[in-house]
Amino acid sequence: MAIKLFVDQGHNPGNINAGASANGLVESEVTYWAGIYLAVFLRVDPRFEVMVSRPYPDTVLGNDTPGSLRERVEMANEWPADYFISIHANANENPQINGSEVYVYERDSIAYDLAQKVLRSMVEVAGTKDNLVRVNPSLYVLRRTQMPAILVELAYLTNIEDADKLKCCLYGFSYGIYLGILDYFGFL
C-alpha cells in the first residue's frame, strides 16, 4: 500500500494568508512551485500517493489566515495522509540571516526523524546553511494534524544569496526534500 504524503504549499496568492515577499520573490509563488515539483518527484514513485493543498497557482484556501490554516489541516486529516509536509520560505528584518530549517511539534518523534533527513538532503542539494531542526509546538499545522508533520523553511527571501538560490534553483530544493523522504523510508 502506498505511503500517503500531503504536500502543503504554505500561504495563498493575494491578500488572504499571503506570506512574505522580498528580493522579487513572493512566498506563495515559491511554495506553490516547490510543492508541485516535489509532488512530481513523488508521483513517479509507486510507493507514494500524493495530495497537494494548492493544485493550481491561483488556489486560495480559507477566507482569512485562521481559516486558511484550518482548511489545510482538515484536507490532510480527512484524506487521511500518513505524513504532512508544509513548505514555506522564511523572512527576517536582518538581511544577513540565511539558511534552511525545518520545524516539528516535538523532539522525540517520527516527525523529528523525518525532518532531520529532509533538512540534511535539502541543504546538501540546495547549498544553503543548515539552521537545524527546531521544535515549535505553537505552529497550527504541526499541532492540529493527526499524522507526523514537518514545516520546511526552504531559505530566506530577505537574504540576497538565498533569494538567488530560490530564483534559479527552486527545483533543487524540492529534489533535496524528495531525497530526504527517500532516505527516511530507507529507499535510497
Rank of each mutant, 00 (worst) to 15 (best):
I3L: 14
K4D: 08
F6A: 10
V7H: 05
V7M: 08
D8M: 04
Q9P: 13
P13S: 14
N15G: 11
N15C: 04
N15K: 13
N15H: 09
I16Y: 09
G19L: 12
G19Q: 11
A20W: 04
S28R: 13
V30E: 03
Y32L: 12
W33D: 10
W33H: 12
G35T: 12
I36M: 14
I36N: 05
I36A: 10
L38K: 01
V40T: 14
F41G: 09
R43E: 15
P46R: 15
R47K: 14
F48Q: 13
M51N: 06
V52E: 03
V52Y: 02
R54D: 02
P57W: 13
D58K: 08
D58P: 03
T59Y: 07
T59Q: 07
V60H: 05
V60M: 03
V60T: 15
L61V: 06
G62F: 05
T65E: 15
P66L: 07
L69Y: 06
R70K: 15
R70P: 03
R72A: 03
M75C: 12
M75A: 14
N77S: 09
E78H: 08
W79P: 09
W79M: 07
W79K: 04
P80Y: 01
P80S: 11
P80I: 04
D82E: 07
D82L: 03
D82Q: 07
I87C: 05
A89P: 00
A91M: 05
A91P: 06
N92P: 02
E93M: 03
N94W: 00
N94R: 04
Q96T: 07
I97R: 02
N98L: 02
G99V: 06
E101S: 13
I110N: 12
A111T: 08
D113N: 12
L114K: 09
L114F: 09
Q116G: 11
K117A: 15
K117T: 15
K117G: 04
S121P: 03
S121H: 11
E124R: 10
V125G: 03
A126Q: 00
G127V: 01
G127M: 02
R134D: 02
R134M: 08
V135F: 05
L139E: 03
V141K: 02
V141P: 00
R143C: 08
R143S: 10
R143K: 15
R144F: 06
R144N: 09
T145Q: 08
T145E: 09
M147R: 14
A149Q: 06
A149E: 13
A149H: 07
A149Y: 06
I150N: 05
L151I: 06
E153G: 07
L154K: 02
L154Y: 02
A155Q: 00
Y156T: 00
L157D: 00
L157T: 04
N159H: 00
N159P: 02
A163N: 10
D164Q: 14
K165F: 02
K165E: 00
K167A: 01
C168Y: 09
C168G: 13
C168S: 13
G172V: 01
S174H: 01
S174Y: 02
G180D: 09
I181M: 07
Y184T: 09
Y184H: 10
F185W: 14
